[in-house]
Every structure is written in structure tokens, then in C-alpha cells.
Write a protein that binds this DNA or RNA. Structure first.
Length: 491
RNA sequence: CGGGAUGUGGCUCAGCCCGGUAGAGCACUCGCAUGGGGUGCGAGGGGUCGCUAGUUCGAAUCUAGUCAUCCCGACCA
């Protein structure tokens, strides 16, 4: 390696880009707006998938798969949905190429034009509800609780690795219910799953809330979200859960016969999180020395680096590492022995540190003599010498402490950046001087929300659930308000 | 689509103003030493200078066009 590090203070967004690139998480692809997720970055996503998939199954969901291509006509069936997505859809118009008669290369065969053009899914509500129509006749067919792991495409103007790419990976849950109450309960349940996942697995504190109509998902009655705060004070939407009402059931004519024999439209929810969470993870914990990964999500939790001169020393240390690895693996700890002979220890230290591995064990001849190891923590950058005896158990206990400590650090930062303001001047001042969530009164009108956005680039991230009611005056218009909402500049 | 900038080995860039046939650092390969925080020394491999046309004896360098990328604005998980 040997690259210059950019600090967060110097240039936050350059710092982020460097981490993504230098920690081998992802890179730009030949196609603008798309990314190649490299093995180490993909391992992080796999860790997220594994945990979430487990949580979805626990709450009664099954996985299924619906196609990438959607007939164009499907999109237009739900009016708000088209409005939201039409501008960013990639469209398939032909199904064949042929050799260019005028020279080299291939051209689109004009004779192979599709009768109905297909769009590449920006989300799957429409295909799924066109399918659910065939699956649902009776209340006995409900509920349907499905999830799919998929890629989607939204043609973005400006992209950033993980945070916003044209193609991204995600999961989308789509459920169908007999009653409004049940669909709403499902929507809230999945929001809770996401919040639990973000806080306890990724170590990122989130605020659960409801979106304003302006920020609502196209086609939803209500959009719930979890919002995280990054170290630069910008908010990041980390997951959404939508109560879709009967909108898609009506658009695709999905009815069921109730116990009472009446025909009723089906109630729906949908919910998703994406590879954007990898970006959130990076921005929430990492420091000027590179990536910092909470143990729960770290692909490698403990890395072992041998220090040696002779072949004998090397073999002896690696033998010890192998036995320690066995012990740690039996405690479900993910371990890597860095036995590369092509790199020096100092290089390896720097590399694994940059890649955010929570714990590093270094052992040299002196340690072997003393039956000790050098144990280094990535999060605090502290080192201690520890006896080989009892080491595995110590690490087993230490990893959760690191997880907790990272969460608390992020939470302390986040809590300090929730700032209550009562006037427009305070609002503007806070945005520029202590960026974060700004808790302020808003008169509830979309026009005011838009005006604030136009003036400051700050948007209403959410109306927190369990928000206390409080009389006040809108910071912009002075009109009456019944509660505070959270504003922030956002990714 | 408007405003600004840039295209030169894998990467970061110098050279361009003042045309003379391409250079540095990092990375890579080999050798020797080194090995408890990004190792040192030596030797080597690798480039149609974004593309096209023009000016010229001669173009990375000048001119025109074209393509692409990046940054700033309007849209967004």
C-alpha cells in the first residue's frame, strides 16, 4: 500500500471514497453509476444478509424470487408509483443484436423490437401484486409473507459507491393481509426488526419515525423509516417500511372473499434495506486510520500475525496460531491467520488496521518464550500483552464489549447532535455549526417543508414515533404546530 | 440539461506556454540483505500520450471537431 490518508476533517467525502477504495470494498465499473463489490465488501453485505434473513424467517417470512424485467404497462397502474419512478427507469426495447453491416461491432437489430417494452425493476411492487392476484381468492390464502433478495436499478444522476448507485442490491419484503390492522402491524414489526438490526448488529443508533407526505414512498399510505446520523452530521435513511393500504390491490384488482362472504381488497406492506447500509456502517464508525468494523459484522474478527526470522520460529508460531484458531472457532469467532511470507509484519498491521479488523494478535519469538501474545484493539488503538493461557475466553468476552463500546460512542455523538431550536435563526445557525438532527416545530404543510428545503437544503427526516405532543410555532411561518419534527441535511 | 475542470504505463501526476519522437513516485518482477508498526539497496518489465482530422520535415505539445470522466446545480433507497 503506502497511500496518503485523508482525514475526516479535511474532506469528509474524499475520506469516505478512500476508505471504500483502499479497504478493498468496492470500485467503479465500466458502466457509470454501477459498482463492482469486491470480496471484502461483499463479505460485509453477506454478513448483513445472513443476519437479516434469519430475522425475517424468525418473524414468519419466506424467500421467493420475482423477475428482473417488468412490463412497462405494470408501472402505470398505480398513479403515484409511476410518478415516483418513471424518471429513473432503464427500459429494454429490443431482444437481439446483429453484426453491423457497415463495419465492426454489433448493432441493435431493428427487426427485434419488443411488442411491449420492459423496464428493469426499480422495485417490485407491480410484478409481485400482478402475481398475488392469481394467488389470492379467499381469506384462507392470507397472509402472504414474502421477501426477496435482489438487485434493482434506478438511473441516478449522481452516484456514490454504496450510498447511491444505479444498480444496487437489497431485500424487499412484500406482504398481503386481510385487514388494515394486520398490515399496519406488519409494517411496524419490520421497522422494529430493522432498528434492532441497525443498533445491535451494526452498532448504529437509529431514530424510528414516519415520513412526511413529501418524503413518502411512491404508492404508500404511510412510510416508516429508521434514520441514522453520520459523523459529518448528515442524516442517512437506513431502511424503510411502507404501509401500502389497498393501493396496489386496487391497481392490480386483488380481492379476497372474507369469512362473511364479502369481496374485499387486500391490504399490503413492503419494506427494504440495501447495500447502502455498508455505506452507513463505514460512515458511522470509521476513523482517520481507516475502516472500523463492529465485531458482529466484521468478516474477520481476529487476525493473527506471526513475527519471525527463521523457518523454525515461523513454524512454531503458526502451530500455536492453528491451535488458537481452533479454540476460537469453536466459540464461533471468525479468525484469519495471516501467514503470508511475502509481507512484513508492520505492513500487515497497517493493512488489517485499515480494513477494520476488531482485534489483532501478534506473536513473535519473545512471546513464544514468555507464553504471551500482543493483543491490539482497532477501536481504541490500544495494545496489551496477554497470557496465552485463557486467551480464547478473554477474546470471547472482549468482542461484545467492543461492539457495545462502538455503539455507545456512536450514540453519544448522535444524542449530542439532536438539537432543539425554536427560531429560524437558531435553526440556520445549528445547521451550519452543529450539523445533525434539528428538532423544530413545523406547521405541517408541504409548502413550508419545501420552502425550508429550498432555503437550507435541510429536509424533514421524520416525525419520531412516540413523539411527545407539544404546542409551538413553526420556525418558518410562525403558524401553530402540535409537535416537533427532525430536520437534517441528508445523503 | 446549464456552469467549471481534466484526459499521458495498473495508480497519482510532471512534460504542453517556447513542437525534435516520453519521464517521476507508488505498484509489479528478479536478486541480496532485512523481519516486534507501511524495510533497504541493486537490477528489470510495462505507455498507439482519450479519439479523429488538420498545420508541419517532424505533434503528448499548436488548431478544429468529437468522445469520456470528475466537480458544482435540478432528481433520489
Amino acid at each position: 500500500m503506502g497511500f496518503d490518508k485523508i482525514t475526516r476533517k479535511e474532506d469528509y467525502s474524499a475520506w469516505y471514497n478512500e476508505i471504500v477504495k483502499n479497504a478493498d470494498l468496492a470500485e467503479h465499473s465500466a458502466v457509470k453509476g454501477c459498482m463492482v463489490i469486491k470480496p471484502y465488501g461483499y463479505a460485509i453485505w453477506e454478513g448483513m444478509q445472513q443476519k437479516l434473513d434469519f430475522m425475517f424467517k424468525e418473524t414468519g417470512h419466506s424467500n421467493a424470487y420475482f423477475p428482473l424485467l417488468i412490463p412497462k404497462s405494470f408501472l402505470s397502474k398505480e398513479a403515484a408509483h409511476v410518478d415516483g419512478f418513471a424518471k429513473e427507469c432503464a427500459v429494454v426495447t429490443h431482444y437481439r443484436l446483429k453484426n453491423d453491416p457497415n463495419g465492426k461491432g454489433v448493432i441493435v437489430d431493428p427487426d427485434a423490437k419488443l411488442e411491449e417494452e420492459l423496464i428493469i425493476r426499480p422495485t417490485s411492487e407491480t410484478v409481485i401484486w400482478s402475481t398475488y392476484k392469481n394467488w389470492i381468492q379467499s381469506y384462507r390464502d392470507l397472509p402472504i409473507l414474502l421477501n426477496q433478495w435482489a438487485n434493482v436499478m434506478r438511473w441516478e444522476m449522481r452516484t456514490r459507491l454504496f450510498l447511491r448507485t444505479s444498480e444496487f442490491l437489497w431485500q424487499e419484503g412484500h406482504t398481503a393481509h386481510a385487514t388494515k390492522e394486520e398490515a399496519l402491524a406488519e409494517t411496524v414489526q419490520m421497522l422494529e426488526v430493522y432498528a434492532d438490526f441497525a443498533e445491535n448488529f451494526l452498532g448504529v443508533p437509529v431514530i424510528k419515525g414516519v415520513k412526511t407526505p413529501n418524503e413518502r414512498f411512491a404508492g404508500a399510505e404511510e412510510t416508516f423509516c429508521i434514520e441514522g446520523l453520520m459523523q459529518d452530521g448528515k442524516a442517512l435513511q437506513m431502511g424503510t417500511s411502507h404501509f401500502l393500504g389497498q393501493n396496489f390491490a386496487k391497481a392490480f384488482d386483488v380481492k379476497f372473499q372474507s369469512k362473511e362472504g364479502k369481496m374485499e381488497y387486500v391490504w399490503a406492506s413492503s419494506w427494504g434495506v440495501s447495500t447502502r447500509l455498508v455505506g452507513a456502517l463505514i460512515m458511522a464508525h470509521s476513523d482517520d486510520d481507516g475502516l472500523v468494523l463492529p465485531p458482529n459484522i466484521a468478516p474477520i474478527q481476529v487476525v493473527m500475525v506471526p513475527i519471525y526470522k527463521t523457518e523454525e520460529e515461523r513454524n512454531a508460531i503458526l502451530d500455536y496460531f492453528k491451535s488458537l484458531k481452533k479454540e476460537l472457532s469453536s466459540l464461533n469467532i471468525r479468525v484469519k491467520i495471516d501467514d503470508r511470507d511475502t509481507h512484513k509484519p508492520g505492513f500487515k498491521f497497517a493493512e488489517w488496521e485499515y480494513k477494520g479488523v476488531p482485534l489483532r494478535i501478534a506473536v513473535g519469538p519473545r512471546d513464544m518464550q514468555n507464553q504471551t501474545v500482543e493483543l491490539a484493539r482497532r477501536d481504541t488503538k490500544t495494545k496489551e500483552t496477554f497470557n496465552q493461557d485463557g486467551l480464547a475466553n478473554y477474546i470471547h468476552g472482549l468482542l461484545p464489549k467492543i461492539q457495545e463500546s462502538l455503539y455507545l460512542k456512536a450514540k453519544t455523538f448522535r444524542d449530542e447532535r439532536i438539537i432543539e431550536v425554536n427560531t429560524w435563526d437558531e435553526f440556520v445557525h445549528a445547521l451550519d455549526h452543529t450539523p445533525g438532527f434539528i428538532s423544530a416545530h413545523w406547521d405541517g404543510s408541504p409548502e413550508t417543508e419545501q420552502a425550508i428545503k429550498d432555503k437550507t437544503k435541510a429536509t424533514i427526516r421524520c416525525i419520531p414515533l412516540e413523539n411527545k405532543l407539544e404546542e409551538g410555532k413553526c420556525i418558518l411561518t410562525g403558524n401553530k404546530s402540535s409537535q416537533r419534527v427532525l430536520f437534517a441535511r441528508a445523503y
